[in-house]
Amino acid sequence: MRNTSSQDISFLENELSAERFSECRTPDELNELHDERMKKIVEQALSQVESEQGNCPARFHVLVMGSTGRREQAVFSDQDHAIVFEGGTEHASFFRALGERFTDLMEQAGYERCEGKVMAEEPRWNTTLTGMHSQIQDWLHKGDWESIRYVLILFDSRVLFGQSEAASELKETMFATTNDLPHIPEKIMENTGFRKKRRNVFGQILTDNRGEVNFKTSILFPFVNAARTAAYFEEVTEAPTLSRMKALEPVIPFMKHAAASFEEALAFRHEKTKTASSYDSIHQIKINSLSAKEKEDVKRWMKDGKRLIQEVRSHYSSKERTSSS
């Protein structure tokens, strides 16, 4: 078992300290700061592993996925990342060590470990570039729920450290493989098809027992999932939901309206949570603490998110019918 003892993260002091999160005025500023911190952590991890194992043996790319990949992080965020390296598997031990050190340092810096183990310390998410390309093909050919979920996780990736084309090239493999597998689009739509009810028949917001809603799953996710699905079908390689929405406006007219709502929702979440004190509470918003206007906004975002899902489903279902007839 590897040593996961505390790591020194003094290299993140001053301008990259977590205290600076609350000073960020917009979600963009916040995500810039996260990126800067994480790049610094990659450099630190690389320097530590090089000092133990010698120079880095090949070019590599650190991919970030999830909310990090989409540039939608809140003040607290968990880890979702991968390392792909060039050359062959003879370099695997170096990059495995790098992945483990990076994951540990990230945890020390306040980024919770990913419950789903989407982290560069895991073999699935730490492999050669060619290995990752063939893994994508395998996942799509396998086509079960879990494999498709891995593809969609990787579809939300962007390069944090390394060459930005690496992520786009992986996505090109996704598109090319999907084009040969006509049953996969339906599976992609179904993969994020769990539709949680967010309002009751009287239009009231449904909360948990504590009177709270999970802002991420109840409000942001419908936009994120719908935009991801449409972006996949339209072969848009960008990861941020807002960038995807902009690129999709010509295809789905409602996307423009939805993008405005989503941007408002992100800004609202930023304002409400920029002084939050823990990862556990970051997504929970107490409905009774909101003003009447804010409640109306939340309802509107829920409604727009639901409509966007319907628009995307109906657009691609009818397209599928047309192409199959």
Partner: peptide, 9 residues
């Protein structure tokens, strides 16, 4: 019917 209408569950 009522619990479904009121709570969505």
């Amino acid at each position: 019917l009522i619990v479904s209408a009121m709570t969505g569950k």
